[in-house]
Every structure is written in structure tokens, then in C-alpha cells.
Simulated scan of single mutants.
Amino acid sequence: MNVVIIEDEKLAADALADIVAKLRPDTKILSSPGSIMEAVKWLELNQESDLIFCDIHLSDGNSFEIFRKVDVKCPVIFTTAYNQYAIEAFKVNSIDYLLKPIMAEDVAKALKKYESLQQRNLTKGYGDLQEIMQQSQPKQLGARNRFLVKKGQALITVPGEEAACFLAEEGVVFLFTFEGKRFIINQTLDQLEAQLDDRKFFRVNRKFIINIEAVEEIVPYFKGRLSLKVKPPLEMELVVSTYRANAFKQWLDL
């Protein structure tokens, strides 16, 4: 299998290439363009790729521009820190959409999906593959605007605009309001992340999702990480990893 990785962060491109190589040792990485211009130039001259992994936010703009300039025939798996582009991504030969940080198990599922679609398409034309891909897309759900939480023995709802952050701690997920109130919510961070408006909420790390209105101050930390001061104040150090730092800054600047 010939794969192209379009990614402007070398560490991220190398990490993804390593994951793919471990999952499919016979894979050949043909190229790793880091910008729209580089990707367009490469794809215009080379059409032998079987699959493309493509980050949406590149150094010179939105990568959907690539597919407006070049008639790409192979399927695409998009990678990004934001899920609001999912619908547009699925209009561009996309068979999957992976949110960063990318995990090996997510890539494995995406590759299996690609192989399944290829197998189903052995006796069909490319137009039929497009139809199959469209049928396989998950339905998009609206963003959550309220949350059911526990208050003592009772259940109450908290409006979405009052949610400052979500914290996973020892198997329990808490919702913190801007007023400093803390409630237990009966969902995992993974479930919440898929339901939240990612223009307003960001998954900082495995334990924490923050509302953009709760970010008060960002301080550079060692090794490219970021330390956050948030409201309401939390009794813990909140650090954005080196891997998530650029995506976090892009999210704040949308």
C-alpha cells in the first residue's frame, strides 16, 4: 500500500508514519508534504498513492484547498484537532476523520475501514466507491447545550454556557461551572468531546476539557508545553502537552 501523509508538523507526521508502519509493515510512505503548495505540486505529478492521511490545518491554510486544485482519486483520512470540519471532509473522498492526538487504535480502525471499502469495491467503479463511502459516514449530531448532572440524590440540568470545564478524576467525571460549583456527570470525556461544540470546548489532555471562556492566561512551559490559568481556579496544574500546544493556540485563534 502506498501512503501519502500531508502534515505540517514533522513530529506529528513521523509519529503517524510510525503507527502506520507498525500496523501495516508493507506500507510505503511516498511523501510527506507540509503545506498546500507542496501537496498540490506533488499530487499533480504523482497519482500512484492508494491512501492519503491529511491534516486540515496546514502552515499555509486549510487543506481542503488542495482538493479544489487537484483531482485526487484515492480515499483520504483527515487528521485534525477540530471536529467541526467533519461534514466538509466527507465531501472530499474522505473515509474517516481522526481527532488529534492520534492513537494507534484509531488508525487501525481507519485502515480496516479503508480495506473493507476497497474489498467491496473490487468489482465496482470509483463512482460506486464514492457512494459506498457516503453511505458509511456517521450522522452528525448537534452540539450539547445542557447537561444532566447529580446534585445530592437529585438530578438537575446545567446550561451549556455555564460549563467552564470537565475533569476526569479516579474514574469520575466532574462538570465545573463558572461559579465554581462542581457536579458529577454520568458520561466519559470521550463521549462529551464528541458531543461538545469544539469552537467553544477543547480537549487539553486525557483528563481535561476546557471552555474557551474559562481560559484566562497562557504561560509558556518548558519543552514547548503551555501552562494555563483558568476560571474558576483549580487546585491542580493544568498543562497543555507539546503535541497539543499548536492545536490549542490555533483553536484560541479561530
Rank of each mutant, 00 (worst) to 15 (best):
L167W: 15
N83L: 10
G171E: 11
C165M: 15
D128P: 02
E169N: 13
L167F: 15
Q118C: 07
I132R: 07
E115Q: 03
E131T: 13
E105S: 11
Q137P: 00
D96Q: 04
I87D: 10
L141P: 02
F64T: 13
R144Y: 13
L99T: 11
P75G: 10
V76M: 01
Y114C: 04
G127D: 15
E162H: 03
V158Q: 03
Y85H: 09
F174V: 06
K112C: 10
C165Q: 14
P75A: 08
E161K: 05
L129C: 02
Q134E: 14
I95F: 00
V173L: 13
A168V: 04
N93S: 02
I132A: 13
Q118K: 06
E131P: 04
F147G: 01
V70Y: 09
L175R: 04
Q130V: 11
M133E: 08
F67E: 05
E65M: 06
Q135F: 14
G171R: 12
Q119S: 08
Q84V: 08
Q135I: 12
V76A: 03
N83R: 12
N121Q: 00
V72M: 02
M133R: 12
V72A: 08
K151I: 12
D71L: 06
M133W: 03
E105Y: 10
D96A: 07
F176M: 09
V173I: 05
K73Y: 15
G171C: 12
E65F: 03
L129N: 02
N121S: 00
L99M: 10
F64G: 07
G142E: 08
L117P: 02
T157G: 03
Y126S: 15
G142T: 14
I132F: 13
K91V: 12
Y114K: 05
L148S: 08
I102A: 11
Q137D: 00
K100Y: 06
Q135K: 15
T80Q: 05
M103V: 08
K69R: 02
Q118T: 08
I87Y: 06
G171L: 12
G125A: 12
K100Q: 10
P75R: 02
I132S: 11
Y82N: 07
E65I: 06
Q84E: 08
K100P: 10
I156M: 05
A81R: 01
Y126A: 11
F147C: 01
K69I: 00
K109N: 14
A89W: 09
V173S: 14
T177C: 04
Q137G: 00
A81H: 01
K100N: 09
S116W: 03
L117M: 05
D106S: 14
A81Y: 01
V173W: 11
S94L: 01
V158G: 02
K151R: 12
K150G: 00
T123D: 08
Q153I: 08
F176I: 09
E162P: 02
G152C: 05
Y85V: 07
D128H: 09
Y126R: 15
Y97N: 01
L155T: 10
F147Y: 03
A104N: 00
E169L: 14
